[in-house]
């Protein structure tokens, strides 16, 4: 699977405008983009599970996993089935980021941003593949991908998710004692199957907004942030917020 690394996205992760005019930086982005493509060993897995609501949270049937918290419950409000996915760029990308940290901080941050862009692009493709499968089965839609650590869904389930998918064996993806995914440029996520369109689907609307109003993004982001995210502990690091998506948690 060839992953596209969109320069605008890279610049966004670098907290820069897409109109950045700096020959050096632009050249470094170009170089990092082509270099990282050679290092990426993109691997992914996903599996479908039925879910049921229980007192503790959402039980993922046939597994040991129970998804706890308000935000995931809201996220999967319209779903009876979920997909659990895991994806990684592989260990070589991490090693190269560490390498550049010793050579040049500028290069390492650019490389890191390219890697983040790549793993997100990879996940988009996996998500599209899942969506195709879901639609083919006669369903309406899927929810966006929801990862441990979003809202009040704890990252303590990281290891269990990996175990369920046998991700360490199959794609070399592990979690550390502190539930950090390693290789670090990796994602686990939960996607709900939506069987029929409901009236209120803010997330879908948000995403449509994103598609149409890229140019107004900054304004919209601001409004959206004050609405939802200001009080969240993950405020600064939230990948979702950067994309203008609201995870569903009430701060």
């Amino acid at each position: 699977m060839e992953l596209e690394i969109d320069r605008t996205e890279v610049l966004r992760y670098l907290q820069s405008s897409k109109d950045l005019e700096d020959d050096n930086i632009n050249r470094l982005i170009e170089e990092a983009t082509s270099e990282i493509k050679k290092l990426i060993n993109f691997r992914y897995l996903y599996q479908k599970f039925p879910i049921e609501l229980s007192e503790d949270g959402i039980k993922v049937k046939g597994t040991t996993l129970t998804l706890k918290g308000k935000s995931i419950k809201k996220h999967l409000n319209n779903s009876k089935e979920i997909y659990i996915m895991a994806a990684t760029l592989g260990a070589q990308v991490d090693k190269k980021i560490s390498y550049y940290e010793k050579v040049s901080v500028t290069k390492s941050m650019i490389f890191d941003a390219c890697a983040t862009t790549a793993i997100e692009a990879g996940c988009d493709q996996v998500e599209a593949e899942i969506k195709e499968e879901v639609l083919a089965a006669g369903n309406e839609d899927i929810t966006f991908r929801y990862s441990p650590g979003y809202g009040d869904l704890g990252i303590e389930i990281q290891k269990e998710i990996l175990r369920i998918l046998k991700a360490p064996k199959k794609i070399g993806l592990t979690a550390s004692k502190y539930n950090m995914l390693i290789p670090t440029k990796s994602v686990t996520a939960i996607i709900g199957v939506i069987t029929e369109k409901t009236e209120v689907d803010h997330q879908a609307e948000d995403r449509i907004d994103r598609g149409n109003e890229n140019e107004n993004l900054e304004e919209r982001d601001l409004e959206f942030e004050t609405r939802h995210c200001k009080n969240c502990i993950l405020y600064q690091d939230c990948e979702l917020r950067r994309k203008g998506i609201y995870c569903g948690a009430k701060g």
């Binding site: 700096d22 050096n24 930086i25 470094l28 901080v105 941050m109």
Partner: peptide, 12 residues
């Protein structure tokens, strides 16, 4: 006027 990567580049 300039962005984070440029700031870091100058710092280096």
């Amino acid at each position: 006027d300039i962005f984070l990567p440029q700031l870091v580049q100058s710092a280096e």
